[in-house]
């Protein structure tokens, strides 16, 4: 009777406990090994995005990127220590090349995170980079394609949209056909970023 009890009640619980312990340990080890690589990937992505949005050349080599960031990029924080925006200086460090702000907005499936770069006078866009997005691949996901991002260089907010493939003037950009929601999300992010950056970086100049 007690043997039956052990076999039917106690053993399964013990078995599950031990096997869970084993598998959790294995995944924990793998997580610990790769943790730093994942963190590094994320910070590298942010650095590339800042340089791209500032319109600066992005070297292939990771060490070169580190050097440029250390030399030309200054992080500006608020009183609580949160990053507000980044100042990217010109190559000879004589003047400000660009102000870059990291901005989030609501996309169709999730949050869209962008780096938005403005020129030294905060009048026009230096460039935009999509850091993170979960839009529909093939539709809204095309906000990460280079033709879409490149079109913003030199443009001025507030933006309105024109249809894909149509000529756009300096306050307009080509939206993506079949991805109205994603295009609107980008428009909102860019328009609010330019208001924000004027507010926070405008007086410090």
């Amino acid at each position: 009777m007690s043997r039956e009890f052990f076999k039917n009640r106690i053993f399964p619980v013990l078995f599950m406990f031990v096997i869970t312990l084993v598998f959790i340990s294995v995944t924990t080890v793998i997580y610990t090994i790769t943790k730093d690589t994942i963190k590094f990937n994320e910070s590298l992505r942010l650095r590339r995005a800042i340089l791209f949005a500032a319109g600066a050349a992005i070297p292939e080599d990771q060490d070169e990127i580190e050097k440029i960031i250390a030399k030309r990029v200054k992080e500006v924080k608020d009183d609580k220590g949160n990053t507000q925006y980044y100042i990217v200086y010109k190559e000879d460090l004589t003047a400000v090349n660009s102000y870059v702000i990291i901005k989030k907005g609501a996309g169709l499936w999730g949050t869209i995170t962008m780096a938005v770069g403005f020129d030294g006078g905060i009048k026009s866009l230096r460039g935009v980079e999509v850091i993170d997005q979960n839009e529909t691949p093939g539709l809204g996901g095309r906000i990460s394609e280079s033709w879409f991002k490149e079109q913003f260089r030199g443009k001025k907010s507030p933006f309105t949209k024109v249809a894909e493939g149509e000529p756009a003037d300096e306050n307009q950009f080509q939206a993506i056909t079949g991805a109205t929601f994603s295009s609107n999300a980008i428009m909102d992010i860019l328009n609010t970023s330019s208001i924000d950056i004027k507010e926070i970086a405008g007086d410090s100049r």
């Binding site: 599950m16 096997i19 869970t20 598998f23 959790i24 294995v26 995944t27 793998i30 997580y31 790769t34 690589t37 994942i38 990937n41 994320e42 992505r45």
Partner: peptide
């Protein structure tokens, strides 16, 4: 449990080496 562990491993490895 076994399946979930392997999937988490795939996820972590992709994040680290194919971001």
């Amino acid at each position: 449990l076994i399946i979930a562990s392997y999937v988490i491993i795939v996820d972590i490895v992709l994040k680290a080496y194919l971001p």
